[in-house]
């Protein structure tokens, strides 16, 4: 099946995606194209549709119209193949509180058919600094530990596509630094990453591209190095208010 993906296929391709919740249109035509190595930071006010877009990219939610493909696999027609390539960190930890860190990752590893699972779990747990807590129940973890474990969870099957939905939620400044470092340590440079965030400061630091989502549309998109950081908060305000 891997033969179907040619090296030239984009990691994430989104064409004219709309999403309606009943009669309410939440996304009004989104186009995106990300290659491996691209790191898109998605800004936007609450209710702009950031989470909806991430959920559609992750194949959890299905677009009302339009097309999503992950490394050439159409999310509608080949969802299982597409999902295999996606790792996600969301607001929720997606962890079972009653299981230990090890059991959580082992269950997931089985679902993803991760080869050499034991080694993978151990090396990841060391990376995120949770090796001593491997056999501890997740319910006893602190918030920061859970977040780290959920990052390990997203990386378990070494996905080429990473979706991070407000990963800094509930983390203090130390936690955010840890998050950024962990992402780098785990090789986010070679992956296609989409990250949503509220924090302008945090979002401007990482990433290769910046986009602003407002009222269901991408109203601004620019390479991070071309963005005037001093003026960005002004741009952000203009973009999000112009559409109101």
């Amino acid at each position: 099946m891997a033969t179907e993906t040619t090296p030239s296929t984009l990691a994430i391709e989104v064409e004219a995606v709309t999403k309606a919740f009943g009669p309410r249109l939440v996304l009004k035509g989104i186009d995106l194209a990300l290659d491996r190595g691209d790191f898109l930071v998605l800004f936007g006010p609450n209710g702009a549709g950031k989470t909806t877009l991430i959920r559609i990219l992750s194949t959890i939610s299905r677009p009302t119209t339009g097309r999503v493909s992950i490394a050439g696999f159409d999310a509608k027609r080949k969802p299982v193949e597409a999902r295999r390539l996606i790792g996600m960190v969301s607001h929720d930890t997606m962890l079972y509180r009653d299981l230990t860190a090890y059991e959580n990752l082992r269950f997931l590893g089985k679902m993803y058919d991760v080869p050499e699972l034991e080694e993978r779990i151990h090396s990841l747990m060391t990376r995120v600094g949770l090796a001593p807590n491997l056999h501890q129940r997740v319910g006893t973890f602190s918030h920061g530990m859970m977040k780290r474990l959920s990052i390990a969870r997203a990386f378990l099957h070494d996905p080429p596509v990473l979706l991070l939905d407000e990963p800094e939620t509930g983390l203090d400044q130390q936690g955010i630094w840890m998050l950024t470092e962990t992402l780098h340590a785990l090789g986010s440079e070679k992956k296609a990453v989409v990250m949503t965030t509220h924090s302008l400061e945090h979002g401007l630091r990482g990433g290769t591209r910046i986009a602003i989502l407002a009222r269901g549309k991408i109203v601004y998109q620019e390479a991070t190095r071309h963005v005037d950081r001093g003026r960005f908060s002004e741009i952000y305000r203009e973009c999000t208010e112009a559409t109101r």
């Binding site: 194949t59 295999r84 996600m88 997606m94 962890l95």
Partner: peptide, 15 residues
Amino acid sequence: KEHGCLDGLMLCPVE
């Protein structure tokens, strides 16, 4: 549904 575990399941590459 608690803590988004169902989302986690739906992300898994299974039918």
